[in-house]
Design a protein around this nucleic acid. Structure first.
Lengths: 242, 242
DNA sequence: TTGAGTCGGTGCGCAACCGCACACACAAGT
DNA sequence: ACTTGTGTGTGCGGTTGCGCACCGACTCAA
């Protein structure tokens, strides 16, 4: 076995942008960017909680965020991921001050943030901004519905593959730092179920992992192993970006 | 065994209103009511489909509507119910012309409907209307997240109880006309799983059923048998109505 | 009255997954 | 070197739910 380092991808990270912001008219975008500050998000941080007021909205650059639902007696279950294609806090455009779900940092990195107060001010002044956030809220709705069905009908292995793909899309690196324990919580299954599912993917040389590091060796193979939900979700996002 | 008829509830139906519309300022409400027409919705009718344009929005009076997600290879899975506390087509307030999910008539009855074209016109003219619809979209988001977790973590019996309660709230009668086959599809389980779960509830004298008629004998008992999700959802709706 | 269709009760074998627990491997600190 | 903690592999018994199939009961129309 070669050491994992040998396979590490060292591509230069492309200039970090947020695609939702990029979709705005130039003038509005610049205005909004000026109102944002760049922050470093650290894995595990809870950015907002269900039914609690939103204090900041976040536009991920290299970081990404999980939306989870908490049911008592169980680990939080992941309902969606937000990377640089989206934002946390889009429901502010609905005029609602609270968050529908808990959100936590799933991948450390940079994000732009703006206070809820200020974003509301911008929303009042710029209908185009409302429109853009509304579109994202709509995509979230679609995602939630699809994710719910996926969780119910599909098995652990395809769901794991899909999860890895979604994360891969948002990190742009082939090495993911996550334990099977963590994956199990996200997928709402036992750790040993992840061990088995990951083992199958590893046996097919699609991934390789050791102690909290998962490497994606065969992106194409992963897509084949995932349920169709992955591709459907991709199509949904394409709607936003014309 | 007494005949079922003996237990039939024959309460006079209260004047049919839609609570979402009732929540609007009087002037706006009357204006909107004038733009609506009353229609009879018939069980099973598909009112809109995912990713297809919305032609009409519906405000149920005595009818109620299911939101379902379709995954190929499976029966449609129910993600939410819309009764006279809500509406179908709230996403029009987001400026999106299409529906996020399939919607079908789950309980025959009356509803008010308005064409999407006209509703859009009203939305442009009345910010208070946008606000109200936005609030409902937000509640839908919350519902979806909670429902997804409920489907995943909770077992058939509590889920069945919850489903019956939600339907009971929307019909206001103690007799529901639904087959176990139908219930199984809604819950995403086998019919025989419903038979078992319903059998348990029946043994506790909480419900009674024969050939497509389910009677709710003990509403309180049903609430105890349901998962906490039911109460949480009730609380969410309370937000909309002050 | 009879036959066709619908609905519900039940049983069987099987797959997925759970909860739990134990063992091993590796990393890091003392 | 030893301990401690963490991450992973694995196994066992049990439950839930699946897919299928069959039967009985009831309804309705011919």
């Amino acid at each position: 076995m070669r050491p994992l380092n040998e396979l590490q991808k060292t591509e230069p990270l492309e200039p970090a942008t947020n695609r939702l912001l990029e979709g705005l008219p130039k003038k509005l975008r610049n205005h909004l960017l000026a109102a944002c500050e760049e922050v470093s998000l650290i894995f595990g941080t809870v950015l907002c909680d269900a039914e609690r007021p939103i204090t900041y909205a976040y536009f991920p650059l290299t970081a990404f965020i999980s939306l989870v639902t908490v049911v008592e007696g169980h680990q939080p279950l992941e309902m969606g991921i937000i990377g640089n294609e989206g934002m946390l806090g889009s429901t502010l455009s609905l005029g609602i001050p609270t968050a529908p779900m808990r959100a936590l940092v799933q991948g450390s990195g940079k994000a732009l943030r703006i206070s809820a107060v200020q974003l509301r001010r911008e929303l009042r002044a710029a209908p185009a901004l409302v429109k853009q956030l509304n579109r994202y809220v709509y995509v979230l709705l679609e995602q939630l519905a699809k994710t719910a069905a996926c969780i119910h009908f599909h098995e652990t292995e395809p769901r794991l593959a899909r999860w890895l793909l979604m994360t891969h899309d948002r990190t742009r690196t082939d090495r993911l730092h996550l334990t099977q324990e963590f994956l199990a919580d996200m997928l709402g299954v036992r750790r040993s179920s992840v061990t088995v599912a990951a083992g199958i993917l590893q046996a097919q040389h699609i991934i390789r992992y050791t102690r909290g590091e998962i490497m994606i060796l065969d992106r194409k193979g992963l897509e084949d192993a995932a349920c169709e939900c992955y591709k459907k979700v991709i199509r949904d996002y394409a709607q936003i970006f014309g």
